[in-house]
């Protein structure tokens, strides 16, 4: 799963939805793989308004990437900054979590990631 996905995923437990601790999920024992994907600047510039930048900064540092700026760039800033486009492309689209766990800091539930697929099915006591 791509790092981009992690920005849209939260704990599947209903009782966790109202807690700010349930997002973002925290990768644990994550094995990363890199894909080479053709860069399409529009796909990055247009996804900016949909990103939760604070969560992305957390994820990025938890995965050992260099710190992202505190504020999200504007579309104009990103358009003019080729290096930043490349860096974001690399982080969001080319970096994949292939194995490991995603942990909810509210309920502590661990979602397994195997062969790049996270499993969000809940045991019956959490549904």
């Amino acid at each position: 799963m791509k790092v981009l996905s992690l920005n849209f995923l939260t704990c599947a437990v209903k009782a966790c939805k109202s807690s700010s601790d349930s997002y973002p999920l925290h990768p644990q024992d994550a094995e990363l793989v890199q894909d080479e994907i053709e860069l399409n600047p529009d796909m990055l510039i247009n996804v900016l308004p949909r990103l939760d930048w604070t969560a992305l900064r957390t994820t990025s540092s938890e995965l050992g990437f260099p710190a992202l700026p505190e504020q999200a760039p504007t579309a104009e800033e990103l358009q003019a900054d080729e290096k930043m486009i490349r860096d974001l492309h690399h982080l969001l689209l080319e970096t994949q979590i292939s194995e490991g766990k995603l942990v909810c800091a509210n309920c502590g539930h661990q979602y397994a990631v195997k062969e790049g697929i996270a499993n969000f099915l809940l045991p019956s006591h959490l549904v």
């Binding site: 995923l9 939260t10 939805k17 949909r50 697929i117 969000f120």
Partner: peptide
Amino acid sequence: ENLVQLARAERNGEVVVADALSLPYRECSV
């Protein structure tokens, strides 16, 4: 799970296993 594995293997899909009644997505996100 078996269909999700096919989606990933055959179409390189960005996919997770989840129940429609317990979706793991943040609200108002997409």
